[in-house]
């Protein structure tokens, strides 16, 4: 794999190895997807602290909760659809209501699962997790941010949802990157519009900003990887300057980043918003580039959304 592109799920196995080395309280569970989530890396080195739960995600979540009550820091893998959909009520009632130290880091979120199609592509997981009281929700933009966030979660008491993905995505950060929960990161300064983005749409937004620059539009790009808690100050500060907002996410426009940013702005600083995301649709089978185009999740789609605001 080339160094300019790496998957965020790849960061999971690598982060777990480092965590497992440093702390024997790290315990990892998976639900028959250890190869896909990459937790297999941990399983091979620390077999005594890895438990495969079989195809039983609800059971995995409650087992993790039990382990957490004994002082373990428990990481759970699966596909995002099953971790959040199948096991929703276990996550809500047994893990988060009790505030237990379980770090849910499922992979294969969004439509970039690709060929498996809609049953395996969750476009609503952020919405589901974001509404659970007190749950911390993180959507890393690249391999290094994913690794830093997964490691940081071990040091912060309480449950986490860290959304990881299947495909290789462009590298934005480097190994020295420090993840700060609750902090949005400005990746490019701009004055004409602000693009708030998460996950794979962060690199797409940076590309969109380059295209826009050639056309004389100066867009600010902010990575809102910490969806909850959300960085209200950084959002307000940027929009006070630009007064125009585009959100970009590989998720339904209902309940995800677009909604989260709108919640902040409509109370504090109303501004026109265009949401680039999936429009109340299920996914589809197809190659990743085909799907990104079909669901309007390309840099060009972000460019159009920004222009739509700037020239209106």
């Amino acid at each position: 794999m080339s160094e300019d592109k790496k998957s965020t799920r790849g960061a999971y196995g690598d982060a777990l190895l480092e965590l497992g080395e440093a702390d024997e309280n790290i315990v990892v569970l998976d639900a028959d997807l250890a190869k896909s989530t990459t937790s297999i890396k941990f399983a091979k080195v620390f077999p005594d602290r890895f438990f495969d739960c079989g195809v039983a995600e609800q059971n995995m979540m409650c087992t993790a909760a039990g382990l957490a009550t004994t002082g373990k820091i428990c990481y759970t893998g699966s596909f995002a659809i099953f971790a959040t959909g199948r096991a929703y009520e276990q996550v809500r009632n047994t893990i988060v209501y009790s505030g237990l130290n379980v770090k849910m880091c499922p992979s294969h979120s969004g439509i970039t699962v690709g060929e498996d199609g809609a049953s395996h592509q969750t476009v609503e997981d952020i919405a589901l997790m974001r509404v659970i009281p007190g749950l911390k929700v993180v959507v890393p933009a690249d391999y290094y941010e994913a690794k830093a966030a997964i490691k940081a979660a071990a040091r912060i008491e309480g449950p986490f949802y860290i959304r990881l993905g299947r495909p290789s995505v462009p590298i934005i950060f480097n190994n020295d990157y420090e993840f700060n929960l609750g902090k949005a990161i400005k990746l490019k300064d701009g004055s004409d519009a602000t693009i708030f983005a998460i996950g794979i749409m962060v690199s797409a937004s940076l590309e969109a900003a380059k295209i826009l620059e050639k056309e004389g539009i100066n867009a600010e790009v902010i990575n809102v990887s910490s969806i909850k808690p959300i960085d209200v100050n950084t959002i307000i500060e940027s929009v006070e300057k630009t007064r125009k907002v585009v959100t970009a996410e590989e998720h339904s426009v209902i309940g995800g980043l677009g909604s989260a940013v709108a919640e902040v702005l409509c109370e504090r600083l109303p501004a026109p918003i265009r949401m680039v995301g999936i429009k109340d649709l299920f996914g589809l089978s197809g190659s990743i580039p085909e799907l990104l185009e079909y669901f309007h999740l390309t840099p060009q789609d972000i460019v159009l959304a920004v222009k739509n605001l700037v020239y209106q």
């Binding site: 315990v27 409650c62 087992t63 909760a65 039990g66 009550t69 004994t70």
Partner: peptide, 25 residues
């Protein structure tokens, strides 16, 4: 109270997790 409960079915899995923790420790 060892675990919050009320939603049925979840206690045995939690108990298993606690039991694993005991074995690990």
């Amino acid at each position: 109270v060892e675990i919050s409960s009320g939603s049925l079915g979840q206690g045995l899995a939690v108990a298993n997790g606690i039991a694993l923790g005991g074995k690990l420790d």
